[in-house]
Design a protein around this nucleic acid. Structure first.
Lengths: 219, 219
DNA sequence: GAGCTTTCGCTACGAGTCGTAGCGTAACTG
DNA sequence: CAGTTACGCTACGACTCGTAGCGAAAGCTC
């Protein structure tokens, strides 16, 4: 198989300007059909054959573009996170609440519920897949953390970082706490991350960050 | 554990003391073989036929005891969480760090990595499976939160709760934050939840809890 | 236009897994 | 002993997988 696929993989490096181009409409139809199939069947019962039928393309077309089910679903779900953005609500607390609510809304969709954890589980034994998830899903979320953090520091709501290494570690910690809590609440506890919960969570996080930072460099 | 309802199938309700009993050794061998197979193959490539061969039993025996792959793996992984307990290290911070490190150690095993998220993903479309995960895995962790919280309140490190409803919500929040953060750190960020990380996380959480509680009811 | 290149839809195929049924035997009970 | 249940084993149809091969279609370059 030729690994010159689209959607994340460097499609047709540069010398392949000739020949019939791949249908962009087919791409959109396939990803849309994948999400529909995820809602109808869930991750485990989803087959590429059914996705192909649903999208109105041949099964072989799917295999020409994606290496397998994992990669296809990652791309299909990644589009759901395109709408994530950092609103400016005036305060750090309000910004956090806004982002968390957006994230919770995406996670509440059935296609995201069933697919996200499944591909993460697969990625534990598939390093390229984890890299794909990271670049197309995780990093996009993580950027919101660093941006919101920088904005809060500009506002004076958070103290500036001493050294960049510490800043990176703190950003990673915040990200794991926020994303992990919302995911766990939604998928494991199976209860809604509604406004009340998000408010409580934000208060704990915010107090923990400002207070802990005020504690100094640490023990 | 009850000897006949281990797998959740209503095999012998109560008045079935006659006939050949099920081999307890086979149960242990099957669950052990399941974990071995998870390490060797991962969740997606694990087949019940291979587990049966590994355990030295017939494939039909597996289907007689478990409804399918999901239930089997849940039981196999649930045993990993038996070692979880709440150490008394003298302070709330040290207690939290101890429990989180235990949890992280379990999550660091390859069989837990690949299986936990997979069954959670499946449970989003399978309510009985979610209930099984809840009772055999999640609730066991959650109990540690309530116990540690009660102990900290007895020590005076945390203020007592106003009403029990608020206490339940707070415990649920803490649980989602702790478990979610560790899981996300380990599986999504794919970085170790080592002592340094756990210390930073505990400081944020602890300051967030005590400070937020000191804030009063809040807006 | 002609010619080349690549994609597309379609069919077919071997390989592998699934979950079940049937049968004879083994183990425990009263 | 008879009765009951679990076990090992074999075999089966149904399904999915991923690939190969074919002719046709859609672009680009000349």
């Amino acid at each position: 198989m030729r690994p010159d696929m689209v959607n994340g993989m460097q499609c047709r490096s540069q010398a392949a300007r000739t020949g019939r181009p791949r249908s962009a409409a087919a791409d959109a139809a396939i990803l849309e059909a994948t999400r529909t199939a995820l809602v109808e069947l869930g991750w485990s019962k989803l087959t590429l054959g059914y996705v192909a039928t649903l999208a109105g393309v041949a099964k072989t077309t799917l295999y020409r573009r994606w290496a397998g089910k994992n990669e296809l679903v990652v791309d299909a779900v990644a589009e759901l996170f395109d709408e994530l953005e950092l609103p400016d609500r005036g305060s750090l607390a309000a910004d956090i609440e806004g982002v968390v609510l957006q994230f919770a809304a995406i996670l509440d969709r059935p296609e995201a519920k069933t697919a996200l954890m499944a591909v993460v589980a697969e990625s534990t034994r598939d390093e390229p897949l984890r890299e794909r998830i990271r670049t197309s899903i995780v990093d996009r979320q993580k950027r919101l953390v660093t941006e919101g953090r920088a904005r809060a520091q500009a506002r004076g709501e958070l103290p500036p970082e001493a050294d960049p290494g510490s800043a990176d570690r703190t950003a990673a910690l915040i990200f794991d706490v926020v994303a992990g809590a919302v995911v766990h609440r939604t998928l494991v506890s199976a209860e809604p991350a509604d406004e009340e919960w998000v408010r409580s969570f934000t208060r704990v996080l915010l107090v923990g960050l400002t207070g802990a930072a005020a504690d100094g460099a640490g023990p």
